[in-house]
């Protein structure tokens, strides 16, 4: 079960960063088909998540991300990194 704070934060970052309507941001939504991102957007997303949530992601991890749930899971796994907790509150 993903921490709800993470879901809210990731959704907010996706909404603000890519102007995707909040109702489209469901766990099963695929980044490329449902959310209309492309491979360049995926890199922007990675950097945007890192900037806004304070996580550091290994580039190779991005290769296995397909759905928004995969993003939640990835952020969840990395949320114990220093400083992340504080950013999740804002």
């Amino acid at each position: 079960m993903t921490n709800p704070k993470i879901i809210t934060k990731v959704n907010s970052v996706m909404h603000q960063g890519f102007e995707i309507p909040l109702e489209k941001l469901t766990p099963e939504a695929t980044l490329f088909t449902d959310l209309g991102l492309d491979s360049l957007d995926a890199v922007d997303m990675l950097v945007h998540l890192e900037e806004n949530i304070g996580i550091k992601v290994d580039g190779e991890k991005l290769m296995s991300v397909r759905t928004l749930q995969d993003v939640y899971t990835l952020v969840d796994e990395l949320s114990s990194q220093p400083g992340v907790e504080a950013k999740l509150e804002h």
Binding site: F18, E19, D41
Partner: peptide, 11 residues
Amino acid sequence: FSPAFRQRLHT
């Protein structure tokens, strides 16, 4: 350009 890209470029 998406806001995410613009922010990335800016920083």
